[in-house]
Amino acid sequence: MTKSTKPVLILGSAPGVLAARDLPKTLFSSIVAINNAWSVRNDWDYHISPEDFPADRAPTDLTPGQTRIGAAEYVPANNTYGGIVYAGATMAFTAGYWVLAALRPSAMIFVGCDMVYPTTGNPHFYGTGSADPLREDITLRNLEAKSARLMLHASGQGCACVRAPGGESRLIFPPMELKDIGQSAMPKLHANPLAFDRAQGYEDTLGYFVESGRYWDSAPSYSTERLDELDQLWFSAGNSAQASDQPAT
């Protein structure tokens, strides 16, 4: 697939996602809705959800051009970038790698994907819900590191990662005002190749690739200490990258 010159909008379920409800569709090559976010706006192109997403909360009346994406599509896409153990098994990251593999955009704009859950008020735009990224899981021990990894892999294929501003975020992507989409250049990331290769090389030595994506079937064989070391390498690589205001190519 030829890389699109327009960004892909990725919608999560945090309350801030409502800021993207009325953005013109023409600004984006595609809109990807994660889990319940399909109800934020009706002009999404792809709905992506895990195998255990409740059927009664999924979209049913799809319009022409709308597609549902499940494990049969996103697991192979994540495998292209090393597999879900390294990518992080929560849907914001899973969707990001699927978009990279399938849509090859110039940029990904994450809205409502900050993975921060307040102790008061509604943590989701639709009310209450489970904080999936905060569950105890070997692949989600350092969300900032996982976001750095996604950002660096995206940069390697000329794709910028940005997030909507406002409040705390576990994503280390640079923030971008939604009103500036289509008017300002996306930041271009200059990765540190030595830091990237160091983290990638450590992944290769660990050998924690699981083609099926069902990493939990062999969880006792993983070393949390080594995964923490790997996370630190990716986090450091992300922090050592330099951003500029030049458009991604």
Rank of each mutant, 00 (worst) to 15 (best):
K3Q: 14
P7W: 02
V8G: 06
V8E: 06
I10C: 06
P15C: 12
P15G: 12
P15V: 10
V17A: 07
A20N: 00
A20R: 07
A20S: 07
R21G: 02
L23D: 00
P24V: 02
K25C: 08
S30V: 03
S30D: 07
N35K: 15
N35I: 12
N36E: 14
D45Y: 01
D45H: 11
D45C: 05
Y46T: 05
H47V: 00
I48N: 11
F53M: 05
P54K: 10
R57I: 04
P59F: 04
T63V: 08
P64C: 01
G70M: 12
A72I: 09
Y74F: 15
V75P: 06
A77G: 12
Y86G: 06
F93M: 12
Y97D: 13
Y97W: 15
V99G: 09
L103D: 06
P105Y: 05
P105I: 06
S106N: 12
A107N: 00
I109F: 04
I109Y: 02
F110S: 05
G112K: 00
C113N: 12
D114A: 10
V116I: 14
Y117K: 06
P118V: 05
T119W: 08
T120W: 13
T120L: 13
P123F: 05
G127N: 13
T128P: 09
S130G: 13
S130K: 14
A131L: 13
D132Y: 15
D132E: 13
L134H: 03
R135W: 10
D137M: 11
I138P: 00
T139E: 02
T139G: 02
T139Q: 03
L140P: 10
R141H: 14
L143T: 01
A145P: 08
S147A: 14
S147E: 13
A148V: 04
L152F: 11
L152G: 08
H153I: 11
H153Y: 15
S155C: 13
G156N: 14
Q157S: 15
G158P: 02
A164S: 00
P165C: 00
G167P: 02
R170N: 14
R170L: 12
L171V: 09
L171P: 03
I172Q: 11
I172P: 04
F173N: 03
M176E: 01
E177G: 07
G182A: 05
G182N: 05
Q183F: 12
M186N: 06
N192F: 00
N192E: 12
P193R: 02
A195V: 07
F196T: 11
F196Q: 08
A199W: 02
Q200W: 13
Q200H: 13
E203Y: 02
D204M: 14
T205N: 12
T205I: 12
G207Y: 01
G207N: 08
Y208E: 04
F209A: 08
F209N: 05
F209T: 05
E211Q: 11
R214Q: 11
S218H: 07
P220C: 04
P220G: 03
S221E: 01
Y222C: 04
Y222T: 04
Y222Q: 02
S223Q: 00
T224G: 07
L227C: 01
D228Y: 00
D231V: 01
D231T: 06
L233N: 03
W234D: 00
A237F: 05
G238A: 09
N239F: 04
S240G: 03
A241K: 02
Q242T: 09
Q242Y: 01
D245G: 09
A248V: 07
